[in-house]
């Protein structure tokens, strides 16, 4: 099985670096990004299964980044990390298509579980899309 590809987006450099190491130890393919803009660039260049996104960031904030990521790829699974998570920002994030959200500081096992969950959902979506493509081809070719 392919390694899950994960992108961590947070302005707290030490935090993302430590988290990335832990996820890599767990066999995930992890990349990091310090702000929303560079994260968008990375997503445009390569495919990710799960994005872990900090909501409170200078520049374009988490919600805005989420919106733009979804525009690039609607199938992206995004988990939001919030500093002082509120129901309001959580609801807002879910509305914008976030897969899940976690309050900082998050328990590592929980985060890992959510990443795997999201990755699996991503696999299902990809599989589903592939079947749809096969069905389309079969229907169009008609043999």
């Amino acid at each position: 099985m392919d390694q899950d590809r994960v992108l961590l987006v947070d302005d707290e450099e030490e935090f993302v670096r430590a988290l990335a190491k832990r996820l890599k130890v767990r066999g995930l393919n992890v990349e990091v990004s310090g702000d929303g803009e560079s994260a968008l660039e990375k997503v445009k260049q390569s495919d990710f299964d799960v994005i872990v996104l900090d909501l409170a960031m200078p520049g374009i904030d988490g919600l805005e980044t989420l919106k733009r990521l979804r525009e690039v790829n609607p199938d992206l699974q995004v988990i939001l990390l919030t500093g002082h998570g509120t129901i309001k920002s959580g609801v807002e994030a879910m509305k914008e298509g976030a897969t899940d959200f976690l309050e900082k500081p998050a328990e590592f096992p929980e985060l890992l579980a959510k990443i795997r969950e999201a990755s699996a959902r991503r696999m299902v979506l990809v599989e589903k899309r592939r079947q749809e493509q096969v069905a389309d081809i079969l229907r169009e070719r008609g043999w």
Partner: peptide
């Protein structure tokens, strides 16, 4: 205090992840 908590949360998160990683090892 809310601001303080927010500020403290960040280093706490860093500490948590670093120590978590070392624990992992």
């Amino acid at each position: 205090a809310a601001g303080v908590a927010h500020e403290i949360n960040n280093p706490l998160a860093v500490i948590g992840e670093i120590t978590g990683y070392l624990q992992d090892l």
